[in-house]
Design a protein around this nucleic acid. Sequence first.
DNA 1: TACGGGCGTTCGTCAAATCGAACGAGCAGA
DNA 2: TCTGCTCGTTCGATTTGACGAACGCCCGTA
Lengths: 184, 184
Amino acid sequence: MHQPAPPLATIAAALRRERGRVGISLAELARRAGLAKSTLSQLEAGTGNPSIETLWSLGVALGVPFSRLVEPPTAQVRVIRAGEGQRLEADQADVLVKLLAAGAQGTRRDIYLMELEPGQARAAEAHIPGSIEHLVLGAGRLRTGPAGEEVELAPGDYLTFPGDVPHHYEALETSWAVLVMEHR
Amino acid sequence: MHQPAPPLATIAAALRRERGRVGISLAELARRAGLAKSTLSQLEAGTGNPSIETLWSLGVALGVPFSRLVEPPTAQVRVIRAGEGQRLEADQADVLVKLLAAGAQGTRRDIYLMELEPGQARAAEAHIPGSIEHLVLGAGRLRTGPAGEEVELAPGDYLTFPGDVPHHYEALETSWAVLVMEHR
DNA sequence: TACGGGCGTTCGTCAAATCGAACGAGCAGA
DNA sequence: TCTGCTCGTTCGATTTGACGAACGCCCGTA
């Protein structure tokens, strides 16, 4: 898998953008980050290849997570696979998954409503790396989680776990849940 | 705001982990990334402070997004039981809002659990422009929506509407709902 | 007009990251 | 055993990123 963009220009743009958002001068940011003005000046000019520690301290000073500075601004077009919601629906008879709101290009979350009938445990494949699942049980009883770390949920319970490892769903009663899939 | 972890050791661990996942040798990875073996060896040992380009090429060679290498292993399994969790400051007595998952600065969605007692209608100010609210009712009956376009919801119902206009919440019974706030 | 202060850039120096080569270890096969 | 290969580490040489100082610039103000 190829990464989309060379980060040099991206970082320069991100620094200018985030610094403008905070509303401080280049010199002020350099002070807060503990860097030399010259270093920051070159970074914002697109010249130079900062070390991790340098960029990290800038992230801290700007109050933004690290990835904000290296990844292209609008969460690069990680296409939400059109069939992803329906595929789950198709291959298991006693699970119904409804896509409530698809994250448009550039957003990072899909919202599903999942209805499950009691039956044997269902295994789910690992999703794309970096995805996270958030789940709130609406009704019923549900045993779910990453393989080996399953948890039993009651209505109103909230569970989050990485979606990029194999995990299980097992409805102990007829259940439904809200599932928020968070992509990277 | 402070970032959680010093990235030096995190990177070393991430490199070993991801390389093991791909199943290639240190020398092979160095070859694919176009780096000297010695450089990679020191990085995996925790010594050194790689430049962005160096770490980027490793990300490409490993086929993982960049942030995978610098941020601590993001998600673990976490459960918030129906009664647990820290409640947010409620501006009205008969509403409880619980933040289940905050979008770490820069992400675009927060997940809330909202509990409402029946009472008079509650008006919400308009949020920041571009925000969208998604709501799935878990139990009870809730009448909500933008002013003038309120809809009555039953358990399992899903409603979405712009959050940047004034809107109302009115619980007809004791209710709870999952609220996903989508920003920007 | 001259002054002080902050701004962002440029230049020379130094420390450090990267490189290339050599090393010992492990392993397969003749 | 000996050969040939790959692995991962260590050690000088060199490129290069980070620093500090100086520069020109723009504003308020005396």
